[in-house]
């Protein structure tokens, strides 16, 4: 799931986990079907048994998602004992194995450390180990590498690629980095101003984008694999204020293909190909932009 800050990516993940602070927030409607149940209809207690178990989450900043006052051991075994029903010693052994899986050297010693004793990359490995420790069906990863340096990001992405596959875990990867999704994802959702504007396979998003926002975004990004060009094709203007969305399409003010209908009617998702949908009234392709 890609989009800019404030487009609702993180709010989506928090809503799925039912972690939206309420008040002031509120899940206003809809449903979240997961394993045959609607998560939005579960009791708080039932939700707790799913959270951290079948459905877990990796946040951007490992320093805030780990408790600085508790050793790694305590933070890992707690969830494992609760969700997998393991004994204390079995939980410790399982946790050490999880740390080994995510590539923490001398895991049997490191598990007794406090979070501040680890580097940023190691901390994020611990967070991933915790997220995977109860064999989740789905991991929500919200900008898991954004706070990390590029060589450490490469380590963590490689780790996620291999461990998620080994564990047969589905991942909802939230990021603003188009390069990261290009290498990591099977399908991609592009969000803008709180809504999905395009949804397609990875190849379709990058080679056959159909929403003017996706097209503009891909054109505006400087590329490592391209020789310096004269000028980046930029998207004009600013994202709209979510509290004062215009009537019609939320992208209208910045869209080069805006028509009359865009100003009055809000487009809904419609199919434009095999598992490829856009929320746009017009039929624009990348060739139109070039």
């Amino acid at each position: 799931m890609v989009g800019e800050s404030g487009c609702g990516k993180s709010a989506t993940a928090l809503s799925l986990m039912r972690l939206i602070p309420d008040p002031p927030g509120q899940i206003a409607g809809g449903s979240v079907e997961f394993g045959g149940r609607d998560l939005l209809k579960l009791s708080a207690r039932e939700m707790r048994s799913i959270r951290g178990g079948e459905l877990s989450m990796v946040f951007q900043d490992p320093m805030t998602s780990l408790n600085p006052m508790l050793r790694i051991r305590r933070q890992m075994t707690e969830a494992v004992q609760l969700h997998l029903g393991l004994s204390k010693s079995a939980a410790l052994e399982h946790s050490i194995n999880m740390l080994r899986l995510v590539g923490i050297p001398a895991a049997e010693r490191r598990i007794h450390d406090y979070p501040h004793q680890l580097s940023g990359g190691m901390r994020q490995r611990v967070v991933i180990a915790i997220a995977l420790s109860c064999h989740p069906k789905l991991v929500l990863a919200d900008e898991p590498t954004t706070a990390l340096d590029v060589t450490i990001q490469a380590q963590i992405l490689e780790l996620m690629r291999t461990t998620m596959r080994e564990q047969n875990t589905a991942v909802l990867l939230i990021t603003h980095d188009l390069g990261v999704v290009a290498g990591m994802c099977d399908r991609i959702i592009v969000m803008y101003a709180g809504t999905i504007v395009e949804e397609a396979s990875r190849r379709d998003i990058f080679y056959n984008p159909r929403h003017p926002y996706t097209i503009g975004l891909l054109r505006s990004v400087p590329r490592l694999d391209r020789v310096r060009s004269n000028r980046l094709p930029q998207i004009e203007g600013l994202p709209p204020d979510l509290a004062r969305l215009p009537k019609g399409c939320p992208f209208q003010a910045r869209c080069p293909y805006v028509t009359e209908i865009c100003r009055v009617d809000r487009p809904t998702l419609r199919s434009v190909g095999d598992r490829h949908a856009i929320a746009c009234h017009n039929n624009v392709t990348r060739e139109d932009a070039a």
Partner: peptide, 8 residues
């Protein structure tokens, strides 16, 4: 080599 490129 570590920089992800937006090209699948």
């Amino acid at each position: 080599s570590a920089v992800p490129v937006p090209d699948p």
